Amino acid sequence: MTILLMKQAFVILGVLLGLTSAVRLAPFPQADISNGVIQAKLYLPDPAQGYYQGTRFDWSGVFASLDYNGHSYFGQWFDKYDPKLHDAISGPVEEFTPIGYETAKPGEDFLKIGVGSLRKAADAPYRFATPYETINPGKWSVAKKGKDAIEFTHELTDAAGYSYRYRKTVKLVPGKPTLVLEHSLTNTGSKPIETTVYDHNFYVIDKQTTGPDFFVTFPFPLQTKGTPRGMGTLFETRTNQITYLRELAKGETTHCYLTGFGDTAKDYDIRIENRKTGAGVRITCDHPIVQLAYWSMPIAVCPEPYIQIKAEPGKEFSWKIQYDYYTK
C-alpha cells in the first residue's frame, strides 16, 4: 500500500512539474517585422506574460533577434533568466534615470519612464538592480504599423505626481539595412519632466566571444575618467577606438566612463565591428551625448550613450536613434 501511494505521489509530482515546465516554456507575447533585408523579432510589453517585467529598463523595443545578410546582432547574453531580473533583457533597450527618487522619502513613490511609478523602499541611494515595488504601471498599447514597424505607447497618469504619454516606434527602412527608433515624450501633467536616457545596446554579434576581433570606434579621441574596470588587462583605448587585449573569460566584465565628445549630435556616431565575421553596425542619434559609458562581457559589447530629456507641461520632446547594419 505504501509503495502504491508513493508511486501515485510521484506521478502527481511529475504531472505538476510538467505543467510548470509547460508554463515556463509557453511563448511570450511577440511580433515579427521585416523589410525584406532585415528580419527581427520583438517581445511585447505585458505585465503578466511579458518576457521582461523588471523595473530598470523601458519595456518597449525588446528584441529577441535581428538578422541581416546571414549575421545575427541580438540575443540572450546572460545565463540566468527570470522576467523580474533587472537585466533579463536583450536588444537596443533604453533606461531612463529615475525622477523624484532623491526627494522621495522611504515609502513614497518615484518615476521611471517606460516602467511606471515605483515605491522607494529605504533611505538609500538608487540601485538599478533593486526590484522596487511597482505602484502604478500605467497602460501599454501596441500597434503593428505594417509588416516593417511596431508602435508602442505607454500612458501614465499621476505617477509620483507626473503624467505623460511616451511613444516609441520601431521601424525598418524599406529596402535598406537600417533600423530606426523614433521616440516622443509628451508631458500631460503639471510638473516639468527632466531626466536622461541611455541606450544599453546589448550587441551579441554572431555570438562571437568578446575579444581582439571586436573594435568599437567613435568620432573623437577617447579619454577615460574614474577607475576603468579591465583597462590595461582586458581592453584599452587607441585614439578613438576601444580594442581588446584578449578574449574575455566567463565572469569577466569591463566598464568605464568615456569623455572627449562635444556638445553636438555629430559625436553620437558609434561603430561596432567584428573582424572575424565582418558584421558591423553604425549607431547615430539626432541629439548630443551628455554622458558615455561602456560595458562588455564575454558575448556582449555595449556602448551606452546618454542624452538629455526635458519636457515642460503640455510640451513634447522627441528623439531618434538610427542603426545602419553592414558587412565587410
Rank of each mutant, 00 (worst) to 15 (best):
Q208A: 14
N187Y: 01
E155K: 14
T237L: 06
F152Y: 15
Y203H: 13
I205L: 15
T188F: 06
I205N: 05
K147A: 15
R167P: 00
R165S: 13
K145H: 06
T178C: 01
L222P: 01
K168M: 12
V204R: 13
V170K: 05
Q223A: 14
S163T: 09
T195G: 06
L179H: 06
T227Y: 10
Q241I: 03
R238E: 14
K145N: 14
T169H: 04
P221R: 07
G146Y: 10
E194P: 00
T186D: 03
Q223C: 03
T153K: 13
H154D: 11
T209Y: 04
F202I: 11
V197P: 01
D213E: 14
T186P: 01
E236Y: 09
L172P: 07
E155A: 13
T188W: 08
N201A: 06
Y203L: 15
F152P: 00
L222I: 11
K147M: 07
P177W: 03
T224Q: 11
D158L: 00
R238L: 11
D206H: 05
V170E: 14
H154P: 04
P228H: 03
E151Q: 15
L179C: 03
K207S: 14
F202D: 02
R167M: 11
M231N: 10
Y198V: 06
Y203T: 07
T217S: 14
Y244T: 08
H200T: 11
Q223V: 07
N240W: 05
G230L: 07
E182Q: 14
N201M: 06
K168H: 09
P177Y: 03
T233K: 12
G189A: 07
T178D: 01
P219S: 02
P177K: 03
T233D: 13
F152M: 08
V170Q: 12
A160E: 04
Q223Y: 07
A159R: 00
H183Q: 03
T178Y: 00
T169V: 13
Y244P: 01
A149F: 09
D148V: 02
Y203I: 08
G226T: 08
K207P: 04
D158N: 13
I242D: 02
T157H: 10
T178H: 00
L185E: 02
L172T: 05
T210P: 07
P219A: 01
D213L: 01
G161Q: 01
A143V: 14
L156C: 11
Y203R: 09
T157C: 00
D213N: 11
P228I: 05
T196D: 13
T186N: 09
